[in-house]
Design a protein around this nucleic acid. Structure first.
Lengths: 209, 209
DNA sequence: GGATGTGAATGGATTCACAGCT
DNA sequence: AGCTGTGAATCCATTCACATCC
């Protein structure tokens, strides 16, 4: 059995979200097979089975998957059966949007602090989340046991904030600024670029047909 | 010469953004070769040359690339040498954040309308962008010649809004709601999922090391 | 000489097809 | 009988190596 590709891990998250909804609708004893699941998610059933096979055996041959069990086990694999504490750096629109994002809470991802340089915001709450000064990153990360930081600050301050996070002992950073951050090996770095998806569309619209 | 893979197109956008900045710093006659470019972007120079080769010839052998020319031609390929009109459906935090996102304006992507069901917002402006009722989507899309719509509404109303956009004659949709939208072939659909990137991190943190 | 551009080789991911279980 | 789980086959992307041209 080979090491699962990153992209399979992404897809597990998609399966999990669907199974949550499906179970909410169909109840605790719901069953589903790879073909139905594929139809719902507009995917290939072979791929779903292959993705799962990297992590173990989850179904009953001749029957399919018990939704509750599959949900539980994917949660375990993704580390979503425990709570994670997150902070968001940058209390602008993007930071606020992420604070309010329902998908996080549902996945056991709890935002416990915001950081912003704006002294009008420091000490107040946004979406119920307390705003701190970036000068206090180290203190707060330790005190609140923050595992993951999200960088939602402007381009120019992204690396500076990242450095503060790194010395605070954070374990992972998700960066929304359109820049390649440099980061030591022991801090896991993820990136989201909001504009590339859009530029893909302009490319397709621009092509002569 | 084969059809360029989608992922090469994404990378062109990354090259373009870098070249914009690089030219701003180094001036109109700047030159760069694939090795330097790769170093800046933390990539492999072979990959950069391969990506470019799908679309034509851009450099001078023995010299490298003239930044201005490369910038111009990548812009052409991606359709970013013309303006695009966008609308954003959902004037919540995410919609507002996207309105304020500097990266769009810089790439000739102009947000010209917001749509929201909240009657307190309709008729007002957010970040300088006028808010309209979703009932007026068809009228406004045509009047303002909107090419691309961004869906930043809650999960439950995403498909409904998508349907309105589809009948309005929109050409492309970028969906931020965590759901697979159904969409006719002639409307190009892109998806951005904010939580998968995060869940990738929890997976890595969760793995025994 | 020196860097591009590109076929060929390698490495990964997806799809297939069927053995293996229930 | 029927669906999972998985090696093998295919397909696609990345990396390499060098012929090519300024």
């Amino acid at each position: 059995m080979k090491r699962p590709p990153d992209i399979s891990i992404n897809r597990l998250a998609i399966y999990l979200r669907f199974l949550d909804d499906y179970q909410a609708e169909k109840g605790l004893n719901a069953k589903i097979n790879s073909e139905e699941l594929a139809r719902f998610l507009d995917m290939n059933p072979h791929q779903i089975r292959k993705d799962l096979s990297y992590f173990g055996r989850f179904g009953e041959r001749g029957v399919g998957y018990r939704v509750e069990e599959l949900r539980e086990r994917i949660g375990q694999i993704l580390g979503l059966n425990r709570k994670w504490n997150l902070c968001i750096c940058g209390a602008g629109n993007l930071g606020s949007a992420l604070c309010a994002y329902r998908g996080f809470r549902q996945m056991n991802l709890n935002i416990v602090a915001l950081f912003d340089t704006d002294s009008n915001k420091i000490g107040r709450r946004i979406k119920g989340i307390r705003v701190f000064s970036p000068a206090d990153i180290k203190k707060i990360v330790r005190k609140l046991h923050i595992d993951i930081a999200i960088i939602a600050v402007p381009l120019d301050s992204a690396q500076e904030i990242a450095n503060k996070l790194i010395i605070s002992g954070i374990r992972a950073i998700l960066n929304f600024a359109p820049i390649k951050l440099t980061c030591p090996r022991h801090v896991k770095l993820g990136n989201v670029d909001l504009s590339t998806a859009l530029i893909n569309l302009t490319y397709f619209l621009n092509r002569p047909r």
